[in-house]
Design a protein around this nucleic acid. Sequence first.
DNA 1: TCCATATTTCCAGAATAATGGAAATATTAA
DNA 2: TTAATATTTCCATTATTCTGGAAATATGGA
Lengths: 109, 109
Amino acid sequence: MESNQVVQALASLAQVTRLDLYRLLVQQGPQGLAAGQIAKQLGIPATTLSFHLNHVQQSGLITAKRAGRSIIYSANYQVMQQLIDYLSHNCCEAQPASSDCCNPDRSPT
Amino acid sequence: MESNQVVQALASLAQVTRLDLYRLLVQQGPQGLAAGQIAKQLGIPATTLSFHLNHVQQSGLITAKRAGRSIIYSANYQVMQQLIDYLSHNCCEAQPASSDCCNPDRSPT
DNA sequence: TCCATATTTCCAGAATAATGGAAATATTAA
DNA sequence: TTAATATTTCCATTATTCTGGAAATATGGA
């Protein structure tokens, strides 16, 4: 994962509404949730939600597919995993021995 | 780690200069680096750096200690670990079985 | 005490992000 | 084809963040 993408992914989550949004989609699992349902759950207007959905989608952390009139959003776990790997790697590289910062079972990316 | 703190920590890293700053401090390890040296490395004015240092320090991801005329900044790995744990937990909770998203050796925070 | 160095705070301007209403688009059903 | 539903795009406003110069503060040395 490249530095620019990392910043974008972090920015996607670095805002209360969007973090809530992402967490909601993670809870829903692979079947995802329609935009209207998300708006209802989060208690925000469709327009505002659309702005945030677009933001998070750009980063790759969520994906969309149309189903009839609705558009279903769901979390993309792979991108989250890449983000976590990047952070783990950055957290650890200076002192692999002294911290419990690294997962010894997973090699750095 | 609480949702507000998470947003703050993510926001600390969701900006190119600050991500570079944090990575630089991770590279330096526990002995850290003086503000002036950081500014030189990153090629930014002291004022701008001070703004970003303050931002990241607020989140707890870095800490400062005075040494003579200089102020030495260093990465706080614990907070990064908490952040990673939070993300891992959020990434996994919907489908613990199907993904390699969780570290099975570490209990969720 | 006076000066040099390191860093911060203060401040104002520029840039970017967030919000939400109105109108546009896509889809389905009657 | 007309109407209803779901969502988005357009746009203007407000809010927040970023930037860097000038001045203030802290420290150590002559």
